[in-house]
Simulated assay, not measured.
Amino acid sequence: MNAIAAVAPRRRWRSWLWKLPLLFVAVTVLQVLLLRFVDPPFTAFMAARQLEAWGTGDFGFRIAYDWRDLDEISRSVPLAVIASEDQNFANHNGFDFKAIEKARAHNERAEERARRRNKPVQRLRGASTITQQTAKNLFLWRGRGVTRYARKGLEVWYTVLIETLWPKRRIIEVYVNTVELGNGVYGAQAAARTYYRKDAKGLAPAEAARMAAVLPNPRRYSIARPGPYVQRRSNAIQRQMRYMGGPAFLQNID
């Protein structure tokens, strides 16, 4: 009788075990579907940054975040981040495999040059799309070591969900509102008020390009005090914005 009683809990556990993947799918689909219509009050990255500040004893630290619908943001902002981060945004399905291959080849050459000079690699090229970055910002963590690989797997899953359930316009709207543009400064409106003392609606192309130029390292590079690298990158982004056709390019995602 005791043996039979011991088997019953194990059977119940096994019956739940196969349901866990289904529960995960249901919860994540609901998450992404909800945020198609509801503007996120915060993101995983914002929460992590706030906890990081508290963990160091900085209890006065506050996240700067102020949502604005895409129509309330200068069209130069989405154009600048697309020119900077993901020029195939309008055409890919969440992953830009050509960009991934180019980045891999570039990084191999950079690492080889660094080895020959016996110096560390200065700057590696990434190939994350805006959709991937949105997935990471909203739901995930930075991660190192083993946790980094777990995060990458979840990033792929959330990227697929976002591309399936959201239109491109919603993806870029969420991205420009939640991307970090300075230490604790998230989104175009908060950055516009912090660095330019104006609303995001009034940002000029050069100002939007400078904001995009600090990505993906907004704590290393400064919008307020742009060094030579940010200035060069900002100029290059402005050229790309013109080459892409200016704000008319955004009709591809409207």
Rank of each mutant, 00 (worst) to 15 (best):
V32S: 05
V32A: 02
V32N: 05
L33G: 08
L33P: 00
L33V: 07
L34M: 08
L34S: 14
L35K: 04
L35T: 02
R36Y: 12
R36Q: 10
R36L: 05
R36D: 01
F37C: 13
F37H: 13
F37M: 13
V38N: 02
D39H: 15
D39S: 15
P40Y: 05
P40E: 04
P40K: 09
P41H: 06
P41L: 08
P41V: 13
F42R: 08
F42P: 00
F42M: 04
T43M: 03
T43L: 07
T43Y: 08
T43F: 06
A44Y: 10
A44F: 03
M46G: 07
M46R: 02
A47I: 14
A47M: 14
A47L: 12
A48C: 04
R49H: 08
R49M: 11
R49D: 09
R49A: 13
E52D: 15
A53G: 04
A53M: 11
A53T: 02
W54V: 03
W54P: 00
G55R: 01
G55P: 01
G55N: 06
G55C: 08
T56P: 03
T56K: 15
T56W: 15
T56D: 13
D58W: 08
D58F: 00
F59T: 13
F59R: 07
G60F: 09
F61T: 07
F61P: 00
F61S: 06
R62D: 12
I63G: 08
I63A: 06
I63Y: 06
A64K: 14
A64T: 11
Y65Q: 06
Y65N: 09
D66T: 02
D66E: 15
W67Q: 09
W67G: 03
R68A: 11
R68K: 13
D69N: 09
D69P: 05
D69Q: 14
L70S: 07
L70H: 00
D71G: 06
D71Y: 07
